[in-house]
Simulated assay, not measured.
Amino acid sequence: MQILLIGEFSRLHNSLKEGLEHLGHEVILVGNGDLFKKFPVDINIEISTFNKPFLLFIRKAIHKITNFDIADFEVAYKLKKNLKTLHDFDVVQLINEDALSIHPKLQIPLLKTLIKQNKNMFLLSCGDDYTNISFYLKNKENYSILTPYLENTSLKKEFSYCLKYVSPPYKKLHDFLYKNSCGVIASDMDYHIPLKNNKSYLGLIPNPVNTDKIAYNPLQVDSKIHIFHGVNTLSEIKKGSQFFKDALEIIKEKYSDKVAIHTTFNLPYKEYINVYNLAHIVLDQVYSYDQGYNALEAMAKGKVVFTGAEKEWQNYYKIDEDSVAINASPNISSIVEKLEWLIENPNKILEISNNARAFIEKEHNYILIAKKYLQVWELSSKS
């Protein structure tokens, strides 16, 4: 089978590609590397010309006045140049509704061409999109990534990226994709919940993780327990970082002789990973029901991760609470209590570490996940 994967924001498509290629399929990945993350792609459509100093100045000025990024034209041009080679694929899959990360007016014509010259297009619900942002704006769940905004609408600017998906241009893109795709696949529970009962929904396929590339180093608790909280200031509100900061202040005061706390801000990757590798416990996020890619990779390494692991997730995978990952809710007392439990019972850290790696190998193995994608694609193809 020939497969075209469009977009890469987390390593999902890279891991899926590795699984598909292991099974003998031909895969091409198109993407922009996702800024500083620089994920590998076969066809690179990243912004380069408009990031040169003088043009970047003009780009920012125009964006400030019009709210339009002229660099979108560069991305559109680069993809258009490659369109003549991107034909006759059995499957085209978009990483999410904004797979090209350009304005819908530029994106829709390019997608029309891709659809016309290939066989079947599938859409992932992975990250923000019209369906899940609309759903979480209704505030029916206990919490979501939009909870900080719903509790304080003065944060609208900080949530402009999420809220753009319910604007008229992105609603038009959403409608176009649902009309022209074979269906939508959710990558985790946070996207599965809003899609329930949607007639285009094809089901949840967990994130693929290439455990062959992630070494598992069994944890040892010889002296102090190392707790790591890596803060990205661009997303700290959405991840609920303040809950972790406040909880760590309490832990630091009570257990200064038993823990070493490492809180970092926007570290370059090489420095970040050195601190991260020391950790027994990693604090990820509180406003989720399932694990994102950062949490999954940490679990694959055997870290005890505070992240989304809600009842819905526990029921889906049929596992006990806090046995594989620690369910972190937006509640300081709850986070403190769970940290105390681990500090006072270090054997639990070793147990959860082993369970975490075993869980990733069982439920997120990249080859098994690739097989699940193939099955869904084959069952749902129009041709």
Rank of each mutant, 00 (worst) to 15 (best):
I3N: 00
R11I: 09
L16R: 01
L20E: 01
E21C: 00
I28C: 07
L29G: 06
G33R: 11
L35S: 15
K37H: 15
K38T: 09
V41E: 05
V41W: 01
I45D: 02
I47V: 15
S48Y: 13
K52A: 06
L55P: 02
L56R: 14
A61D: 12
F68Y: 14
A76G: 04
K80G: 07
K80L: 06
K81S: 05
L83H: 09
K84R: 12
H87N: 12
D90M: 04
D90P: 02
D90G: 06
I95N: 02
N96S: 10
D98Y: 01
A99S: 13
A99F: 10
L100M: 06
I102M: 02
P104R: 03
L106T: 02
L111S: 02
L111K: 06
L111F: 11
L114P: 08
C126N: 14
F135A: 05
L137C: 04
K140Y: 12
K140G: 03
K140V: 13
Y143S: 05
S144R: 04
L146F: 09
F159D: 06
S160M: 12
K172M: 12
K179A: 12
S181M: 08
C182H: 07
C182F: 10
A186W: 07
S187W: 09
M189L: 12
P194K: 11
K196A: 11
L204E: 11
V209S: 02
N210F: 04
Y216E: 01
P218V: 08
L219I: 11
V221K: 11
I237S: 07
F243Q: 01
D246I: 07
A247E: 10
I250P: 08
I250D: 11
E253M: 14
E253R: 15
K254G: 04
S256K: 15
K258S: 08
I261F: 07
I261R: 05
T264S: 15
L267F: 12
K270A: 13
Y272E: 03
I273N: 10
N277F: 13
V282K: 08
V282G: 02
Q285A: 03
Y289W: 14
D290N: 10
A300K: 05
K301A: 01
K303T: 05
F306S: 02
E312C: 09
W313E: 08
V324R: 00
N327H: 15
S329R: 14
E337K: 14
I343E: 03
L350D: 08
L350Q: 10
L350I: 15
L350W: 12
A356V: 04
A358P: 09
K362Y: 11
K362M: 03
L374C: 03
V376P: 05
